[in-house]
């Protein structure tokens, strides 16, 4: 269930205040409810936006999650670019980069 489960967790986290509360109060318990790979678990524990982006997490889910984690816009874009530099191209999904040239 790789990628699907991590996206499902972000979906629930983004839209449900009770899941956000559990994220703050019982993070390990929350993670245990999802069939995550070790890499996915590590990325979530670190709040590693760059790695989540490269894994192929849908960009809209990741953008909302980055906002939830209080990333400033430029820092969020920079985190995705850092992920590409460190982990290589996006592995799955639609939200690949093209020329990497955006507004910021």
């Amino acid at each position: 269930m790789s990628l699907y489960a991590v996206q499902k967790l972000l979906y629930n986290l983004n839209r449900d205040a009770r899941v956000r509360q559990r994220h703050d109060d019982d993070f390990e318990g929350l993670l245990a409810d999802y069939d995550l790979t070790d890499e996915e678990r590590e990325a979530l524990v670190e709040g590693n936006i760059g790695l989540l982006y490269v894994m192929g997490v849908n960009g809209q889910l990741l953008m909302h999650y980055a906002a939830l984690r209080q990333y400033a816009w430029d820092d969020y874009i920079a985190a995705m670019r850092a992920g590409l530099s460190r982990y290589g191209p996006v592995r799955h999904g639609l939200y690949t980069t093209t020329d990497g040239q955006g507004a910021v």
């Binding site: 809209q60 874009i77 590409l84 955006g102 910021v104």
Partner: peptide
């Protein structure tokens, strides 16, 4: 548009 990618703004 290419939202929620490093290309955001293209």
């Amino acid at each position: 548009h290419w939202p929620a990618t490093p290309d955001s703004g293209k």
